[in-house]
Design a protein around this nucleic acid. Structure first.
Length: 896
RNA sequence: GGGCGAUUAGCUCAGUUGGUUAGAGCGCUACGUUGACAUCGUAGAGGUCACAGAUUCGAGUUCUGUAUCGCCCA
């Protein structure tokens, strides 16, 4: 057996184990009819680019759950895949074409789509490999892409079915138009950004009553943040209950510059508090105005085109950019004396999530999904507990959105995506919605058919993900066995986009919710707390982090740096700390292997161990408590806390104490050596199991070494690899309250002596005498003297149940009721020691006073639980004993 | 305008049924290479738990309000 390197080298280890697992089919579900399968659908990353830290945290948390359940023996499946990301991917490839001096219109639709596929192939494999680097134990044989044949079939089925149910419809509405993407986008893809702008007050002349052409001109003043839309005004509206405008409703105003006569109407939608209380109405360019227009049968005049330039209807401004036209129009109005005032005003500007362009609300004929019938069952699923959202506070966000839902615009003016399965007949003018492609019109049998040019919103395919990936609409064995899935784990930023919509489609098409738990994690930010984005240039590439510190270090950091649902800052120091943890695991394991190398017996099952010493009992006790807690925490989705507790146990309890003590125990007789080796190995084995979901690589590496070293017969191993080793089961038989208390006392004694040595500058190698008064713990401490000698560098401690005469020249320490004397004649500075004792007396006195106060409060004594009161009483008497002892010691020392 | 979150040691964060003297890592100070690990060990210093009220025998933890920062929705 070759000597293990002194430090853990992740690069050498990770790829090897991933290949071992993948080739060994460890990621595939192992049928277990006795248990409910545990299934996760991986949120499919966009094929637009490489994975970022958001994907890394998703992948890490999901892999923790998957590996945990696999070790629990559940039939475990994690379905991976990617998303075609319509607008984003099309944009990227268009940019590529632009660099080549061409564009999509030039090369044509077919060639363009071909180009996008090339891109997709390249990035898909890149994303797959990144997930492999991250250690994701997903079943690659079930990988899906949203544009796969099967998933495309699902999309068509859903579109046609919803159309037949009247839930998909085509309509002319105000939609969010992005003049850069040249497509409609949904409400969710618009970011509202409060932007400093102007509120311009413009007066419109009123047409005189009774044909009185002249005389005093009358005006009505309106306020607007978008003066250029004045050209498209077809009414002025006031609130019908607003007394200021009682007499003006029904009159006619004249649009400046274009001199259009428009009615003044009363409409409840007008807020009396905004501007002057009268608003201009531009049905073609504003969603609220559009509704007013419908109610009052107003004409629609489109003055801004799909290219964000003014149309022919904009008269003198035709052809100008929308902002240029605004400037020019305001200047012209100024000249006409129609500008009343201009105020600073914060405008909530809608911007395209992809291109950051200011959205233009425009009337357009698009396809929509009627959402209310889908939203209500989705809302109830959470309300009545079929689905649990973790953390629970996101319920509110979820409810608010579903309760105020708007219809979903699903058509996109793109070439990349699922083509809308609708055909229009030029011969008879009929429209056909079909699951299959058609070449003749079913209405008139003409072949003059045109398929709808547009494609569907990407989310229209990803909202089917939990069942389309399992084979739906076909009733496949996977679908029967693995739907519904167990947990949907993703970032809270896509609750609306994705999670809520999946719940809707799952209930609607499958009849039950697609998962029983929604776990939402926070976002990863940079060291300054800022959101990472390509434009800011603060994006951290997970591959670089993994190259530098190892995958396990990154995973452990992502898993333990925050609490559920909260954002985290990713800080180098933390990753370094966790790289060091991986190295600690490595070296502790090396120690165990080397120090037990000559001992037979393999790695015993933990329940077969027999603790012989206090330290044995204590470490097993600690391990069982850890197992219980860690298991509960993982079940409760508190992965961070679980990871931190395992880390604490391993580093502090196992390495700092038990491994050190094992060095003493391994000096004993054969039986002691064998027993200690067994516990060292078994607890290491079990700890590696608890840690495996968090740090899969280093744990598998070390675990394999542990078994190879100690058990040559592979058939005798509990599992062929750690990835499928059984999860530790809580064994109450090892829980040992007495061992906990006694060992804690021993630890205190050791720490106090070490501190005293430090304070007195005793050379590290020098053994010092120690005299202890331990009350009724004589036999317990007698057994522990070798530990104290070794760990505190003392001579064999002299133990007494009580000391009639206390050592004169020396330092005295108190561990609970245990008195420790370190006779260090010559080293002790009596003045300093008196000072130290005074400080301790003062502290103890203060504490005793606090307890005294508490206990003399009748309310406390009568109302608090008896065991709490009892505990306080014990503390008080302990403090009082401490004070007595400290004072006695002080008096002795002072009398010298 | 509505909602959510954060505010705990110099820094980054834990602290989930209210009950020891509020914890960890990093950083800092002192010592250290005793046969796993200097990617380490031993020990130490360091906190008015944002602020003001309320509930309670008891509040970092529950409630109300305020401030600052951040996010989401309209």
């Amino acid at each position: 057996m070759a000597a293990l390197p002194k430090a853990y080298e992740p690069q050498a280890v990770e790829a090897r184990w991933y290949r071992f697992w993948e080739e060994g089919d460890y990621f595939k579900p192992r049928p277990n009819p006795a248990r409910k399968p545990f299934v996760i659908s991986m949120p499919p990353p966009n094929v637009t680019g490489a994975l970022h830290l958001g994907h890394a945290i998703t992948s890490t948390i999901e892999d923790i759950m998957i590996r945990y359940h696999r070790m629990q023996g559940d039939e475990t499946l994690w379905v991976p895949g990617e998303d075609h990301a319509g607008i984003a991917t099309q944009t990227v490839v268009e940019r590529l074409l632009a660099q080549e001096g061409t564009d999509r219109h030039h090369i044509g639709r077919e060639a363009f789509v071909e180009r996008v596929w090339q891109w997709v192939d390249q990035y898909k494999s890149r994303i797959q490999n990144q997930h492999r680097r991250l250690g994701a134990s997903c079943d690659w044989s079930r990988e899906r892409f949203t544009l796969d044949e099967g998933l495309s079939k699902a999309v068509r089925e859903v579109f046609v079915r919803l159309y037949e149910e009247g839930l998909v419809y085509r309509g002319e509405r105000i939609i969010n138009w992005c003049p850069v993407c040249m497509s409609a986008i949904s409400d969710l893809e618009v970011n509202h950004v409060n932007t400093p702008g102007k509120l311009t007050y413009v007066r419109y002349p009123l047409k005189a009553l009774d044909g009185k052409a002249h005389g005093n001109e009358e005006y009505i003043t309106v306020a607007t943040t978008r003066p250029e839309t004045i050209l498209g005004d077809t009414a002025i509206a006031v609130n019908p209950h607003d007394p200021r405008f009682k007499d003006i409703v029904g009159r006619t105003a004249i649009v400046p510059v274009v001199n259009r006569e428009i009615p003044i109407v009363g409409d409840e939608a007008v807020e009396t508090g905004f501007g002057t209380g009268a608003v201009k109405v531009t049905p073609a360019h504003d969603p609220v105005d559009f509704e007013i227009g419908v109610r009052h049968d107003l004409p629609r005049v489109q003055v801004i085109g799909f290219d964000a330039k003014m149309t022919m209807d904009a008269g003198p401004y035709a052809g100008q950019d929308r902002y240029e036209a605004r400037k020019n129009l305001v200047a012209d109005l100024e000249k006409l004396g129609l500008i009343v005032k201009v105020e600073d005003y914060t405008v909530p500007l809608g911007r395209c999530q992809r291109s950051d362009t200011v959205i233009e609300p425009l009337i357009s004929k698009q396809w929509f999904v009627k959402m209310t019938p889908l939203a209500t069952p989705a809302l109830n699923a959470v309300k009545y507990g079929q689905i649990k959202i973790v953390p629970e506070r996101f319920n509110k966000t979820y409810f608010d959105w579903l309760e105020n839902i708007h219809d979903w615009c699903i058509s996109r003016q793109l070439w990349w995506g699922h083509r809308i399965p609708v055909w229009y007949c030029d011969a008879c003018g009929q429209m056909t919605v079909s699951r299959e492609d058609i070449t003749t019109c079913p209405h008139c049998e003409s072949s003059e058919l045109r398929q709808d040019e547009d494609v569907l919103d990407t989310w229209f395919s990803s909202w089917l993900w939990p069942f389309s990936t399992l084979g739906w609409p076909d009733n496949t064995p996977d679908l029967q066995r693995y739907y519904p899935t167990a947990v949907m784990e993703t970032g809270y930023d896509i609750i609306f986009f994705w999670v809520a919509r999946m719940v809707m489609s799952g209930i609607h098409f499958m009849g039950n919710a697609p998962f029983s738990t929604i776990y939402l994690h926070g976002l990863v930010r940079d060291a300054r707390g800022e959101k990472m984005s390509k434009s800011k240039g603060n994006v951290i590439d997970p591959l670089e982090v993994m190259d530098k510190f190892g995958t396990d270090a990154l995973r452990f950091t992502l898993a333990t740096s925050s609490t559920p649902g909260n954002d985290m800052k990713l800080i180098d120091e933390r990753i370094i700390g966790n790289r060091n943890f991986a190295n600690k695991i490595w070296n502790a394991s090396r120690f165990v292997l080397m120090t037990t190398a000559d001992i037979k017996g393999g790695v015993p099952a933990i329940e077969d161990l027999t603790p012989r010493t206090l330290a044995d009992r204590w470490i097993l006790n600690r391990f069982e408590r850890l197992t219980k807690n860690a298991t509960r925490l993982i079940e409760e989705f508190q992965f961070g806390e679980a990871g931190r507790q395992i880390n604490d146990f391993f580093w502090s309890d196992y390495c700092d104490w038990y491994v050190e003590i094992a060095k003493v125990q391994m000096q004993g007789d054969e039986q002691a050596r064998q027993s200690t080796a067994a516990i060292l190995r078994a607890v290491l084995d079990q700890s590696l199991r608890l840690l495996h979901p968090f740090m899969p690589f280093v744990t598998e590496e070390v675990w394999q070494y542990l078994y190879q070293f100690s058990e040559p017969d592979k058939a005798a191993w509990p599992a062929s690899a750690l990835i499928v080793a059984p999860w530790p089961q809580y064994n109450e038989a090892f829980v040992d309250e007495e061992a906990e208390q006694h060992f804690s006392l021993v630890q205190q004694v050791i720490t106090l002596i070490r501190d005293a040595r430090n304070q007195m500058n005793v050379e590290p190698a020098r053994r010092i005498p120690a005299i202890m008064s331990v009350g009724n713990h004589v036999s317990m401490f007698t057994e522990q003297t070798p530990l104290i000698e070794f760990l505190a560098r003392t001579e064999k401690p002299q133990l007494h149940s009580a000391l009639a005469q206390k050592p004169e020249q020396g330092m005295s320490l108190l561990a609970g009721a245990v008195e420790i004397y370190l006779p260090l004649a010559g080293l002790l500075d009596i003045g300093k020691e008196l000072e130290r004792l005074d400080k301790e007396i003062a502290q103890a006195t203060q504490e005793a006073a606090r307890l005294q106060g508490k206990l003399s409060n009748q309310n406390f004594v009568t109302r608090a639980k008896p065991d709490v009161v009892e505990k306080e009483r014990e503390k008080l008497s302990a403090q009082e004993e401490r004070i007595t002892k400290l004072q006695a010691r002080r008096a002795e020392l002072a009398s010298i």
